[in-house]
C-alpha cells in the first residue's frame, strides 16, 4: 500500500495514493498505518486520490481513529471525493471524523483545541 507522509508541525499528513480502499486491501492499509502510528498521534489522511471506498474501508478508517485516540490523538480527513463522501454520510462517519477541504485546514484544526 502506497502511503506518503509529510510532517507539518506535530501533525503527520498521510497521502493515500491508492484509488481504491476496499476489503481487498484494507489489511495492507492497516499494516502501512501501523508504522505511522509509531511516529505521531495526530494524523490527517489525504483522500483526494481515492475514488472508491467500501464498508471495510470505512471500518478501517474508524479503526485508525480509535488507535490514535487511544494515544491521545485524533484522525482528520481531507480532500474527500463526492462519491466517497456520500458513503461516509450513509454510515454517519461524517459526524465522527473531522473532514476538511484542504490539508492545511485539517492540520489547523488540531491547533484549535
Amino acid at each position: 500500500m502506497e502511503l506518503s507522509t509529510e510532517k507539518i508541525g506535530d501533525v503527520t499528513v498521510v497521502g493515500v495514493l491508492t484509488e481504491v480502499l476496499d476489503a481487498g486491501n484494507t489489511e495492507e492499509f492497516k499494516t502501512g498505518f501501523a508504522s505511522i502510528l509509531n511516529e505521531s498521534n495526530k494524523v490527517v489522511f489525504e483522500l483526494g486520490r481515492v475514488k472508491f471506498i467500501d464498508s471495510s474501508g470505512c471500518g478501517t478508517l474508524l479503526f485508525c481513529q480509535k488507535q490514535l485516540s487511544k494515544l491521545g490523538g485524533d484522525l482528520k480527513l481531507c480532500g474527500v471525493q463526492e462519491s466517497v463522501h456520500s458513503l461516509f454520510e450513509l454510515v454517519r462517519m461524517d459526524r465522527i471524523l473531522g473532514m476538511f477541504d484542504t490539508k492545511e485546514d485539517a492540520v489547523d484544526s488540531f491547533k484549535k483545541k
Binding site: S55, S56, C58, G59, T60, F63, K66, L90, V91, L97
Partner: peptide
C-alpha cells in the same frame, strides 16, 4: 443493527446495500 457511533468498525455492509 449497525452502530453509527464510531465504536464499531464493521456491520455497515447490509446497511449500505439496503440504501444503494
Amino acid at each position: 443493527q449497525p452502530v453509527f457511533d464510531g465504536s464499531r468498525e464493521g456491520g455497515f455492509g447490509l446497511h449500505i446495500i439496503a440504501h444503494t
